[in-house]
């Protein structure tokens, strides 16, 4: 059967003023035949190689393999016109990898470039993601208030019912949790709302982790216990145990549980946890040298001659990294949650 939709689009009957003919075509439509036809169609067309490269980049990013991720994003970018939404997606990927490697300035510039392209092309979904990425940079660099604004912008730009709403609320709560008393009270409420927002299952875990850490900072054991009782997984579970360790007089068991739950690919977090455990008098197993690896070089967009006239206004607002934090617990704020 010929593809009805392609046929209709080709003839463009409605646009040509032939409404009766178009209407008759719709009336004659054999829906059952279309469904049968669609069922027998071979799979989706092969993806654009640039998209495949980008997807490989994001997979590597989520494995915390930042070298591979950056290479894939840079490769996709080289094959893309700078006004293309794929370019913004690739730039965002580089920005996220740089963020995880604490290269704030580079991350900020790539993020600003991505947002500029997304704004230019009116790609609201990408723009929302860029706002979230900007919030993450600001939060990790020690600017929670600006981060809160970025996450609020992200939330406002998300379409109603977006599956990412819970994640963004959770990030917003992370930012509020690092502010004063009113921010912390609001953060506790926001974590609870985020945990019950449908969408991504991992949101609940990260909301629990954030709640536990905030509970530990406020000296509220019941909040930490509630978060642990929800049995989060992976790194979220590790943060819950870190929160329990902060309140415990003997943190040994909690810190060992945190270490066991912390995936080895989270090198920065593992380095911090080892240092924090040492400060609390607890030795963690394994070779400390294994946690240290050379950081991945991230290209700086302002040095890249392919982007000479694409500097959006955000690029001037490079956030200063927060001053040397007074203690190890404060340095935890470089991580999410």
């Amino acid at each position: 059967m010929p593809d009805f939709w392609a046929d209709l689009a080709a003839r463009n009957l409605g646009a040509a003023g032939r409404h009766e003919e178009a209407l008759q075509l719709v009336r004659d439509l054999d829906l059952a035949a279309i469904l049968r036809h669609n069922a027998h169609r071979s799979g989706p067309p092969p993806p654009d190689p640039r998209v495949a490269q980008l997807l490989a980049g994001w997979q590597a990013y989520h494995r915390a393999d930042y070298a591979a991720a950056t290479a894939a994003f840079a490769g996709a970018l080289a094959a893309t016109d700078r006004s293309d939404w794929l370019a913004a997606w690739a730039m965002l990927g580089i920005a996220k990898a740089a963020t995880d490697l604490a290269s704030w300035t580079t991350a900020w510039r790539w993020c600003a470039l991505a947002a500029g392209v997304a704004r230019f092309g009116e790609h609201l979904d990408l723009l929302a993601a860029c706002a979230g990425a900007r919030g993450e940079i600001l939060l990790r660099a020690g600017h929670p208030l600006l981060a809160a604004q970025a996450f609020a912008e992200d939330l406002a730009l998300l379409p109603p019912g977006s599956r990412y709403a819970g994640r963004v609320r959770c990030c917003l709560a992370h930012a509020w949790a690092r502010l004063g008393e009113r921010g912390r009270n609001l953060a506790l409420a926001a974590y609870r709302v985020a945990a019950h927002t449908p969408g991504e299952p991992a949101t609940r875990d990260f909301a629990c982790a954030g709640m536990a850490l905030l509970g530990a900072e406020l000296g509220l054991p019941s909040v930490v216990e509630t978060a642990l009782a929800a049995r989060p997984a992976g790194i979220a579970a590790a943060w819950c145990h870190v929160a329990a360790a902060r309140l415990a007089s003997d943190p040994t068991a909690a810190l060992h549980q945190a270490w066991a739950q912390l995936p080895s690919l989270h090198r920065g977090e593992r380095r911090w946890l080892r240092a924090y455990a040492a400060e609390r008098g607890v030795d963690l197993p394994g070779d400390p040298a294994a946690d240290l690896e050379a950081p991945c070089p991230i290209p700086d967009p302002l040095l890249d001659p392919r982007w000479p006239r694409c500097a959006p206004i955000d690029a001037d607002d490079v956030p200063d990294p927060s001053p040397t934090l007074p203690d190890l617990w404060s340095q935890r704020r470089r991580f999410m949650p």
């Binding site: 208030l145 604004q149 609020a152 912008e153 939330l155 730009l157 509020w176 502010l179 004063g180 008393e181």
Partner: peptide
């Protein structure tokens, strides 16, 4: 679209 107001370092 979004606005964040603060007093000192708090919301």
């Amino acid at each position: 679209i979004a606005c964040t107001c603060s007093v000192g370092d708090d919301l």
